[in-house]
Structure formats: structure tokens, C-alpha cells
Nucleic acid binder design. Structure first.
Length: 644
RNA sequence: CGGUGAUUAGCGCAGGCCGGUAGCGCAUCUGGUUUGGGACCAGAGGGUCGUAGGUUCGAAUCCUAUAUCACCGACCA
């Protein structure tokens, strides 16, 4: 047997007969064992030489006309209908053959770009000992999302939601010298996070597949270089996947570290909001986007403070309606729980007032970072507020508030404003900072809004929704400090390694791709991740020997060329086959019928454009082969080489 | 965790108020006619009505408990 490589990375083998045997085997190998790109030795091929099949008559197509009632997202409905996934339980999904084919192609592209960036693959366990988590401190801080259990010896374990602890433990044992650095290790593994509310199919599942990688460097400069490489690799990956995405600045969240970028696939169904500058390429997650201080100075106080009755008005809108004033003249005061100075203190926690302009909204991520505010953020309950102030939410204001007051930058520029009186049913008018509220601190705690100035000074902000498919973090020494992960430097002194961590939600990527590429007839996959590059749809094959012969020949030739083909050899009516083949998202369909064959022609239909063209029966197969190669080449060639 | 709703055949649903041993569409199976856009005719199979108690001669239906699921919110890499 002659070694070959699969078409996705340039299949080449001169001997047609061997090619005919190898290509299907490679397909099978990829599906089952994620073998790609690398050359496959003959022995391996022999070992794998069974089970190859891409005929609908011997395949689990499992398409549905109706989608489950619980699916709200188009991608979720379509993935179920097209036979990509099936739900096993809340947040747990089985990947059917068609969905798995897509998933494996996504993994292949990831592996390829990782290799180009000099990363090395390994595989770490799904189950992890709790000791590691206790060591890093996240046994306590991770919360109920971390699924914990005991083994038969009563020892604590967790289902890995991520692998920082394991990789750090590995690195400190295996990496002893600066000479082994830099190193970038990754794996593609199942993760489990016990989400409060799994939804949207595999978009937010509890069990999901993630590619996560970790870089180890001696110096900060080294880390920065590793980080840039991964940034490039991630950009290449999502480009090759055919997704419309943006890399945006992001919050570092519970993972910690300094700089961080998210890779967001733009889609209206996205759960995240991204802020873009109108006149630069600035982009950041709204959680992080800084709201600049207003440029115009605060207007001077002109009115005395007074009291207005506002019975039953507990929201800014209601007060604004009653007083016939715009919402931005009313200050909105929220109360959050603060940190106790002494953790031993059994008394009630201190409360902190957060004051915003009435028409704006609180940014919880920013709020959590304010000194004295308890993290994770906790709003004071109605009872806590009543005990503290003697009034209920809806009538709270900063004047004479008996605790710390944090005022948003924009709200701090209000003058002669309205606010709650800290007495039920009353608001104050003509309130002014300093004069009426002498002590307060100013901070950026609101969400940026469309039209606000961009924090980089270039134009205004535009908001778009995105699906987070990748996230890269520069961790520095956060984990290596906590877990004493050191190497000896040139002077023989131990130093903590500079780490970075990089993740891609592999299963989520598939959902994001469907979300971005579909129409009323189903999924339209980009060439690089389509479950099949072409489907063969025969008309009335049972009756026509001519049709059957042509299809069989085309099927053999296409598979021999390494093209992923689905041959719909069921004796279904044409409409049924058309509908199914369109639903699953293959980019093109080869339609073969007696009517056309009489004229030595067949038809090729394109999924994305809906275009149909008649081509010569003789050249149809070679035309498809070159089209597929061209389409793959076009997407793959957009990847940029790594700097070195 | 709060609010709302649901759980009846593989999927989508009706029946429930008014208790009498379960039905529709799709899917599946058989036979036939069909076959360039989800066909038609004839027949068939498939359900301890989420689970456990209770009321009753009798419970899918009424009562109690419980589990699971979904949507909205809160929360969250």
C-alpha cells in the first residue's frame, strides 16, 4: 500500500487504483479516528479497511420534517431536523453520523492550524482529582457549575470543565528547564459544565467538546509571542471554516489573567453583544467596553432640592411618566451587597448604592470589579434594603444614603436631577452632586450604548450580537504561582512559567456555522466543513439501468478522488431526496435522470445559489472534482502564514 | 434559584372542566399504483397516558406528593 494524504490537505497519489482504495479508507479513518493530513502507513489502512459506506440505504440519515417543540434557535431546529444531533437529556447530545462528519472536519482544520503554529497535541482525562482543584483554589471558587463526585474510596473527583489544573500539574513535572521552552500543548476533549440553564441545543450544552491549549514561556515577551501566534492561528481557523467572525477584546472572567480576546461569530441569535467603533477596527465585548467620561462639563445647580410625591412609582419609566420628564433626568439607584471587612463578622453585609442615569443599564462585570463590591455580584433583596433604609426598591436615592455611593461617570454629570427619596412613595427633585450628596466615588459602571463615543476616540459605537466560539487569554503566572510550576532559568534559578490559555468550543462552532449558513430549505455548509461535498440523486433508479450505471460509476470515481459523497440510492420519490439532500447542507447535488441522459447530460445543482446547470455526462465528475478542490482551496488559502 | 407552562405512540398534538379502559397528523411496516420537488389507494403494528400514593365499583381525566422538561428572568465561560 502506498501512503497518501487526504484531499483536505492535498491528496496526491499517482496510481488510480490505489487511490480508489485509499480515498474511502481515509474518509473512514478521519471519521473514526481523526486521522488527517498525516501520512497513513499501509498497515493502518489494512486495519481500517471495512465499514466504509456513504449510501443512504446503508447510512443513518435520520431527517425529520418537524423539529422538536423546545427548539427556538434556527440552528438547533435544523441540526435536529437534518440528523446532525439528537438530545439524550438536558444539555446532552448524541452526534449522528452527518453531524459527526462536520465536527471532525472542524477538528481537522483546528489540528492543521495548531500544527502550523507549532503546537503539540496530547489528551488529558475527562475526570480529574479534586486535589488539583483544591490546590488552585477553584474547588471553592468555581461554584456549582463544577460537577463533583466521589469514587468508591470516597475520594473527591470532578468532571473537567476545563484543564488548567491538569496541564499545570503536568507541566511542573515534565518541564524542568528553560531549554524545553517555549511549549504549546493542546487537546480536544469533552468537557462538562453543569450550566444552570442549558439551551439552544449544542450552542449551550452541559457536555461539549472543546479544543483547549496552553502555552508555556520563560518570559513575558515569550508569552506575548505565543499569544500572537494563537491569535493568528484562531483567525486562520475561523476563516477556513467559512465563518463571518471578529476578534474582540474581552473580559478575563473567572480564568483570570491580563489580556484576552474573544472570537465572535456574528449572528443575531448570539448571546453576547459586541461593540464596534465606526471609524476604526476597535471591537470589544460590551462587558468590557469602557464608557468615556462626558466631554462637556456638568451644568451648574440652578434649583433647590425639593420633594415630589410619587405613590406607586417603582420604576424610572413610571416616575418619568408621572412627572412628565425624560428618563435621563432621573437617577436610578441600585443596591448591591458589599464585602464584609471582617470575614468573621456575623452581622448583615454592608450595602452599596450604584447610581446610574435613568435611561442606562448596569454593567455587572464592571460593577463586580469595584472595590468593596462582593464578587460574584449580588443584588440586595427587598428585605435587606428595607432593613437598611426603611424603604423599598423603587424609592432609593443617593441623598443621605447611609453607605458607600458609587456614581457612574455619566450620572455624575447630571444636574438638577430627580432621584428616590429613601422614603416609600416620594422622590426628590432638583438634586445636585456635591451640594446634596457630598461624598461619593465616580466609576464606569454602565453598559455602553449605540451612538456613544468609542473608547479609542475614533467615531461612535455600533452594537452587534455574536456567538463566542473562541477565547484566548494571557494568564501570565496566575496558575504557575498557585501551583508552583517553575523551570530553571539560565542562572539555574527557579522561575514561574508564563502561561497562556486558548480555547475553541468545537461543538458550538458547528451550531454557529449553521446559524450563519442556512435558508428555508435547511443547512448550507461552507465547503470545508460540509458533511458531504456532493450528493448523488438518481431519478427512478430502480427502473433505469442507465441511471443506475451512471450513478454507480460517478460514485466510485468521486470517492476515488477523495471527494466526500453521499449517494442517495433509496427508492424514494425525487422530491423526498431533493428535500433531504438540501436539508443536510451539502454544497452541490448531482441529479441524474433518463430525461437528461438521453441527451448525454446530467444536472448539477448548487445549494447556496440555487443555480442549476446541465453539463455533459462525460465531464460532470471531473468538473465536480475540480470545483470542490477550487472551493476548498479558496477558503483554505485565506489562512495567513505564521510569522517566524 | 424565582415566575409561567408542560409531561398521552418515534416526532408534533387532541382528549381532561363533565371519571366508563385512548385518538389525530407525520413517521414506521405490508400490498398495489406511482416516480424531475416532501405522492395516492388498501391494510397493519405501535401507548403500564412521567412516577408514587389516594378518592372511586371504575382514573389519562379528580386529590396529594414527587421527578423530568421547556420558556422568561436571575446567574454564568
Amino acid at each position: 500500500m502506498v501512503p497518501g494524504t487526504c484531499l483536505y490537505h492535498g491528496f496526491s497519489c499517482e496510481d488510480a487504483q490505489i487511490r480508489g482504495e485509499i480515498a474511502p479508507l481515509l474518509y473512514n479513518a478521519r471519521i473514526r479516528h481523526s486521522v488527517s493530513r498525516t501520512q497513513i502507513p499501509g498497515g493502518c489502512i489494512l486495519f481500517l479497511s471495512q465499514g466504509f459506506n456513504m449510501r443512504t440505504s446503508n447510512y443513518l440519515l435520520s431527517t425529520l420534517k418537524e423539529s422538536p417543540a423546545e427548539a427556538v434557535l434556527e440552528s438547533h431546529k435544523l441540526m435536529v431536523r437534518a440528523g446532525y444531533i439528537r438530545k439524550l437529556a438536558s444539555g446532552l447530545y448524541t452526534w449522528l453520523p452527518t453531524g459527526l462528519a462536520v465536527l471532525k472536519k472542524v477538528e481537522d482544520i483546528i489540528r492543521d492550524e495548531m500544527a502550523k503554529a507549532g503546537c503539540v497535541e496530547l489528551l488529558m482525562p475527562f475526570v480529574q482529582p479534586a486535589d488539583l482543584w483544591k490546590e488552585s483554589g477553584r474547588w471553592i471558587h468555581y461554584g456549582p457549575e463544577l460537577c463533583r463526585f466521589k469514587d468508591r474510596h470516597n475520594v473527591d473527583f470532578v468532571l473537567g470543565p476545563t484543564h488548567e489544573e491538569v496541564i499545570t500539574a503536568l507541566a511542573r513535572n515534565e518541564i524542568k528547564s528553560y531549554k524545553q521552552l517555549p511549549l504549546n500543548l493542546y487537546h480536544i476533549q469533552t468537557k462538562f459544565r453543569d450550566e444552570i440553564r442549558p439551551r439552544f441545543g449544542v450552542m449551550r450544552a452541559r457536555e461539549f467538546i472543546m479544543k483547549d491549549g496552553y502555552s508555556f514561556d520563560l518570559t513575558t515577551e515569550g508569552l506575548q509571542k505565543s499569544y500572537r501566534k494563537m491569535y493568528r492561528a484562531y483567525s486562520n481557523i475561523f476563516t477556513r471554516l467559512g465563518l463571518d467572525f471578529r476578534a474582540v477584546q474581552a473580559d478575563t472572567g473567572s480564568i483570570g489573567g491580563s489580556s484576552s480576546h474573544e472570537f465572535q461569530v456574528l449572528a443575531d441569535a448570539g448571546e453576547d453583544v459586541v461593540a464596534f467603533a465606526s471609524e476604526s477596527d476597535y471591537a470589544s465585548n460590551i462587558e468590557l467596553t469602557e464608557c468615556l467620561e462626558p466631554k462637556t462639563p456638568r451644568a451648574p445647580a440652578t434649583k433647590p432640592m425639593g420633594t415630589v410625591p410619587t405613590p406607586g412609582c417603582h420604576t424610572v419609566d413610571k416616575v418619568a411618566n408621572l412627572l412628565k420628564v425624560p428618563a435621563n433626568t432621573i437617577a436610578k439607584t441600585l443596591v448591591v451587597v458589599g464585602e464584609k471587612k471582617d470575614p468573621e463578622d456575623k452581622g448583615p453585609a454592608p450595602l452599596i448604592a450604584i447610581v446610574l442615569c435613568g435611561n442606562q443599564t448596569l454593567n455587572e462585570v464592571k460593577c463586580e470589579k469595584i472595590e468593596g463590591v462582593k464578587a460574584p455580584l449580588e443584588f440586595a433583596t427587598s428585605d435587606q434594603i428595607n432593613a437598611f433604609l426603611g424603604c423599598h426598591p423603587g424609592s432609593i436615592g443617593p441623598v443621605k444614603f447611609p453607605g458607600k455611593i458609587v456614581v457612574d461617570r455619566t450620572a455624575a454629570h447630571m444636574a438638577d436631577f430627580y432621584c428616590g427619596a429613601n422614603r416609600d412613595g416620594e422622590h426628590l427633585s432638583g438634586v445636585n452632586w456635591d451640594r446634596d450628596v457630598p461624598e461619593y466615588t465616580v466609576a464606569d459602571v454602565r453598559n455602553i450604548e449605540e451612538g456613544d463615543p468609542s473608547p479609542d476616540g475614533h467615531g461612535t459605537i455600533v452594537l452587534k450580537r455574536g456567538i463566542e466560539v473562541g477565547h484566548i487569554f494571557a494568564l501570565h503566572t496566575k496558575y504557575s504561582d498557585a501551583m508552583q510550576c517553575t523551570v530553571l532559568n539560565e542562572e539555574g534559578k527557579p522561575v514561574n512559567m508564563e502561561m497562556g490559555c486558548y480555547g475553541i468550543g468545537v461543538t458550538r462552532v458547528v451550531a454557529a456555522a449553521v446559524e450563519q449558513h442556512h435558508d428555508e430549505n435547511g443547512i448550507i455548509m461552507p465547503e470545508t466543513i460540509a458533511p458531504f461535498n456532493v450528493t448523488i440523486v438518481p431519478m427512478n433508479m430502480k427502473k433505469s439501468e442507465k441511471v443506475r450505471d451512471f450513478c454507480e460509476k460517478a460514485y466510485k470515481e468521486l470517492t476515488a478522488a477523495g471527494i466526500d459523497v453521499l449517494f442517495d440510492d433509496r427508492s424514494e420519490r425525487p422530491g423526498v431526496m431533493f428535500a433531504d439532500m438540501e436539508l443536510i447542507g451539502a454544497p452541490r447535488m448531482l441529479v441524474v435522470g433518463d430525461r437528461d441522459l438521453e441527451k448525454d447530460q446530467v444536472e448539477i445543482r448548487y445549494r447556496a445559489s440555487g443555480e442549476r446547470k446541465s453539463v455533459s455526462a462525460e465531464t460532470a465528475v471531473s468538473e465536480i472534482i475540480s470545483e470542490v478542490k477550487a472551493a476548498l482551496g479558496e477558503l483554505n488559502s485565506k489562512a495567513k502564514p505564521q510569522e517566524e
